[in-house]
């Protein structure tokens, strides 16, 4: 039985890798940097998969691969069970749309709100101008923007309103899947909650599926149905959100959750028990990539890559759990 249950996933990644070639010095040869290293992932309809992990661990690269903005070096991406590579771009764009972090730079300042929202329709040659105008009206209502902003420009809107425009633009193609890469991290707390509420409502109304990338674990806990934890290009743990937050298994997940600062004035700043040094992705540590910082490290971890241990809930890549299942 698969961890993700019986209904077929709307989005599936199998053995996806992405290797960039980067130059470190002026005269050195380019070296391979594996930004994504063998990711298997399935997202079912209406799931909100929260993707978390340190800066540089490969979250955005994974998002770009899903959006077809980057080609994977190897592995397969399947949308509704059909291989994405070679599929018509318009068809893909109808299924998957992005919402990015910065509502300031992601909107063209010289285009009217109307034109910005209608752009995907124009690019993919959907409908005539009357139909597009109607679609824009509907989108404005949907994301809670007044109709009067349609002839305005991004600089006349607040940060929250701009992010609503970005969401309207993403939804105008009626996608099934929305890839949100840090959609609220540039926003004030007071505005962030409006956008999170909106994303939650839209999911219900339109049966949307989200991949939700965020550094804010409280936000992920609030919105996600499942959570994938990434470390140096790999998904080291994946589980239903409630389980992962209640009982994190991978030592990195534990450290991550231990660093969350809940607004409790009776508590102090926690000790993460995590070394400071993020490894060099060009020369990742041997064995388990996490071993130099792991509080539970064993000898085997230094040389042997951790096994992929899956069960009905999800999976964890760690030697600790392989031993446990063998012992049982």
């Amino acid at each position: 039985m698969s961890a993700a249950g019986s209904s077929p996933p709307v989005l599936e990644l199998a053995g996806v890798t992405k290797t960039y070639r980067v130059k470190q010095g002026l005269f050195s040869r380019p070296k391979p940097l594996q930004a994504v290293g063998g990711v298997d992932l399935r997202i079912r309809k209406k799931d909100v998969l929260g993707l978390v992990g340190e800066s540089g661990c490969g979250k955005s690269t994974l998002a770009k691969i899903l959006l077809g903005l980057e080609a994977p070096t190897s592995g397969r991406v399947m949308v509704d069970g059909i291989e994405a590579a070679g599929q018509d771009r318009t068809l893909l764009a109808r299924r998957i749309q992005p919402i990015f972090q910065d509502p300031y730079s992601s909107l063209n300042p010289r285009k009217s709100i109307e034109d910005i929202i209608a752009l995907p329709l124009v690019v993919h040659k959907v409908g005539d101008s009357a139909g597009r105008a109607q679609a824009v009206s509907k989108m404005l209502d949907l994301v809670g923007l007044p109709q009067r902003v349609r002839r305005g420009y991004p600089n006349q809107l607040s940060g929250g309103q701009r992010q609503r425009v970005a969401i309207a633009r993403a939804l105008v193609m009626k996608p099934e899947i929305v890839i949100c890469d840090e959609p609220t991290s540039a926003l004030d707390v007071s505005v962030q909650s409006q956008i999170l509420n909106l994303l939650g409502d839209l999911r219900e109304e339109l049966s949307l599926t989200y991949l939700f990338i965020s550094h804010n674990l409280a936000v992920v806990e609030h919105l996600a149905t499942r959570v994938a934890v990434m470390y140096l290009g790999r998904i080291v743990e994946e589980a239903p959100a409630a389980d992962l937050f209640a009982e994190p298994r991978h030592p990195y997940t534990k450290a991550l959750l231990a660093s969350v600062l809940t607004p409790d004035p009776s508590m102090s700043v926690p000790d993460t028990h995590l070394g400071a040094s993020y490894p060099n992705p060009i020369a990742p540590p041997s064995g388990c990539h996490f071993h130099p910082r792991c509080a539970a490290v064993r000898d085997i971890c230094k040389t042997v890559p951790p096994p992929h241990v899956s069960d009905t809930k999800g999976h964890v890549d760690c030697h600790l759990y392989a031993e446990r299942t063998q012992a049982a």
């Binding site: 804010n216 450290a255 991550l256 660093s259 000790d271 993460t272 400071a276």
Partner: peptide, 11 residues
Amino acid sequence: LDVTIQAQILR
């Protein structure tokens, strides 16, 4: 900064 590093630096 990342949440883990944020916690370390604040501490």
